[in-house]
Amino acid sequence: MYHHDHCEGFQCEQQQLEATLAHSGGELGALDRLIAWFRQRSLFVLAYGTGCGAIEMRPLMTSRFDAERFGIIGAATPRQADVLVISGYLAIKTLKRVIRSYEQMQEPKYVIGLGSCTINGGMYWDSYNTIKQLDHYLPVDMYVNGCMPRPEALIEGFVALQKQIANGAPSGAMRYRENIDWYKANQRRVLGDNMPPDYTYDWYHAGDVA
């Protein structure tokens, strides 16, 4: 799968991701396709500067990288955001806030994990107070790997996410709904009694698991 003449480094992984997405969602109706197209054309980002990735996220809005030309723009509150960017390692203390922010976002909503730390803990793989795999706690739609990935890589990630949305792939929020028991159990394992309150996922009536 690794062809140097087509791509280089993280771009190849990005392409792999995009390739797998290409053949889903052909069954969408015209209106749904249109809506999906609008959705991918306008992504409001709640940039959660948890770790060192935050420094790579800011230049995205500046004149040099100009993410606004893709319709990507910052949102101030989780209520208005479509994409949650987790930029790097996630301390357990921060995880609680991230979960609450994610649950306050309105569907369809997407999560981008930025940097290796969100994938396997990265250089914090043996740290006592960070989580290792973000995917255990929140449904991640797109990973951008690297330590740290450059802003261009993040833009690649956004573009890949846009393609995924345009194809009509369901957002990770669906996965979160379906496997809420599993996610909440994982969250409880690291947060203990310090869980965010349950009224932010009030659609969940599965009992006292969470």
């Binding site: 809506i35 609008f38 959705r39 054309r41 306008s42 409001f44 004149s63 100009d66 606004e68 030309r69 893709f70 319709g71 723009i73 479509d82 309105q106 569907e107 369809p108």
Partner: peptide
């Protein structure tokens, strides 16, 4: 000194919000 979004960007944003599922 940026390219900036499409001139229809506000329309896209508005439509996206009007078609949010939640």
């Amino acid at each position: 000194r940026r390219w900036g979004p499409s001139i229809f960007q506000n329309f896209f944003d508005n439509m996206k919000f009007l078609f949010k599922t939640e």
